[in-house]
Design a protein around this nucleic acid. Sequence first.
DNA 1: CTGGCTAATTTCGTATACGTTATATGATTA
DNA 2: TAATCATATAACGTATACGAAATTAGCCAG
Lengths: 238, 238
Amino acid sequence: MAGSGDRPSLFDSMNRMAASPLEVRTLSDRLMEVVRDMILSGAIAPDVPIRQDALAADLNVSKIPLREALVRLEQDGLVVSHANRGFFVRGMSAAEAEEIYELRLKLEPEAAAEACLVADEARQDEARRVLAQLNAAAAGGMPTVGPLNRAFHIALVQPGKRALTTEITTRLHVMADRYVRKHLEHKGRHLTAEAEHQDILQAWLARDAATVRRLVADHLQHTLSDLREEFAQGDGQG
Amino acid sequence: MAGSGDRPSLFDSMNRMAASPLEVRTLSDRLMEVVRDMILSGAIAPDVPIRQDALAADLNVSKIPLREALVRLEQDGLVVSHANRGFFVRGMSAAEAEEIYELRLKLEPEAAAEACLVADEARQDEARRVLAQLNAAAAGGMPTVGPLNRAFHIALVQPGKRALTTEITTRLHVMADRYVRKHLEHKGRHLTAEAEHQDILQAWLARDAATVRRLVADHLQHTLSDLREEFAQGDGQG
DNA sequence: CTGGCTAATTTCGTATACGTTATATGATTA
DNA sequence: TAATCATATAACGTATACGAAATTAGCCAG
């Protein structure tokens, strides 16, 4: 009897956000988010093997749904697996950060611009609401800043109804998140970002596609510039 | 320290066709390709539930690696899963085809153009060799046309050493493959494609980036146009 | 037909076991 | 001592069996 204890532990942190009321989700699906956040937050270090039995025991699950979650994360680019050696958190590199932002710059500005033209009122409300939550979380130094930041950027793209574009954008944002957290969170990056977000939202709500395109590109470019600075400085650090 | 040496790393590449001789792969990894080919070839119809026990029995494996393979394919966009209802082959739509090609047009021409500038001799040989194989397979009506076509397009991008771009391009090509097979394979599309491929390769080998960019874009645009025609005609069919 | 109950099928997760591979440890030899 | 070989331990990947929960299908009353 494994489920008898029912330690609440790690899952509740995830269940709080998103989770539309009547959405059914599988365990491995939720595990993916839990493990993903452990990786993004640095709780699991890169390049060290992820011990499946141990981690599964920690999370009070068996290793089969955990493996499925890890497989998902491998496709998401956060972990790599080597046959018979297991899963490892992917190492980070300046080159990868460059590539991530290069791709985001190619996709996100236009996607957001097109989406703003077709967003209905519900989607507009959602974007507004998410940004408010994000600002509140950032002000309070909450650990949900990362996910909410992602939710905001996605909310700008999603109304475009292009599933693939939205999905790729989401993945790129997840990968970017690691770099932002590691290198930028300790300084006031999200404070400058807050102003940029506000301007973007305003143009987006006004359906000013051209401005949205420009502002989103600028926003990404600024973050990338900050990252470049960080990389140039703390170059050799682990 | 484990990773200090970083040997040449024989096994960092993605799923390639000509497997390097002593590459170790897990069962679920190979299963992914098997099931993927079943989907691409239409052996598994869209929108009908994939019976895990039955399929696993057919393939003489247990359902654990099969589920992992299906999870991979879900991230690849070929199947969808609904909690407690299982996995389904994703339905096809003209809208999705449009989006796939729109994204490919945004990424592939430039990626191929940049890659041709830095491709070493080995990569150039590989591109040449793969195209020869593709032409041979197309001439003989072999079922390997799809994978070889994909291999050729990837060979044009891979030397750019941008892992993410290569990976996304690969996925988009896999998704596109389904549409090409279903709607275009029965007509002589790969015959016109053959000439375009030849021109692309020539410019690519000559490191003529601008021409590569243009020709790849044209090539994709032609295929998309053909697809549009097909959709416009056989509109209401399955 | 509609709505709801029951039964059957299937997925999802757990527990357990086992072969194979990798890694660490210790012994042997040059 | 250093390098190589051999052994032991640990971990991964897969198979099997079982149970619980959910979905689907069938049936029946109104």
